[in-house]
């Protein structure tokens, strides 16, 4: 029986023990088995229980995605693995810091577009801005694309954090 070969992107949340080497385990699993990582975000989320939450965006055929989840779940310090993409509606957010250098019309236009995208100015000099923009990856990408023509000099992105809609917790 052959499985469908179409590749799709999945957002996976993983709850893990916050212990040394856990990130290496997860990343090593992906590199060792040849899976993609499109985005990876990790930070402690429960200091009392010593838990961290890892959000991974990965792409693969349905069979590969199933493998990735099973392989993650098999790691001893992993508590939970959830595929947000298939388990009902969810929301994703990313944050970017965007440094734009320039004067005159370009500077004014950058500020105007930042307003449209509800990006905040978090640093300003007479010839530069640093914007903070939050939203879906698509929104962040679009904003960054616009800034490219207006003096973009530096970019930092957090990668995606995501969560299911509604009252249920991971």
């Amino acid at each position: 029986m052959s499985a469908p070969q179409t590749t799709s992107s999945h957002t996976i949340s993983v709850l893990v023990d916050n212990e040394p080497g856990i990130l290496a385990r997860v990343v090593g699993l992906f590199s060792g088995r040849g899976y993609n990582i499109e985005s990876l975000t990790v930070a402690e989320t429960d200091a009392k229980e010593n838990l961290s939450r890892i959000t991974i965006v990965t792409a693969g055929t349905p069979m590969v995605i199933e493998q990735i989840k099973a392989q993650l779940d098999r790691l001893v310090p992993v508590h939970k693995v959830r595929d947000l993409t298939v388990e009902g509606p969810h929301i994703e957010r990313e944050l970017a810091l965007v440094k734009v250098k320039g004067t005159g019309d370009k500077r004014v236009e950058a500020l105007r577009l930042a307003d449209v995208f509800r990006a905040k100015v978090i640093d300003a000099k007479t010839d530069s801005f640093v914007f903070e923009v939050t939203g879906t990856s698509d929104k962040v990408r679009t904003f960054v694309g616009l800034m490219e023509g207006l003096g973009l000099v530096e970019l930092g992105r957090t990668g995606i954090v995501a969560m299911s809609r509604g009252g249920e917790a991971l």
């Binding site: 052959s2 493998q67 099973a70 392989q71 098999r74």
Partner: peptide, 11 residues
């Protein structure tokens, strides 16, 4: 006993 063995090579 290992869920990751299932559907790895053969569906």
């Amino acid at each position: 006993i290992d869920p990751s063995s299932i559907n790895k090579n053969v569906r």
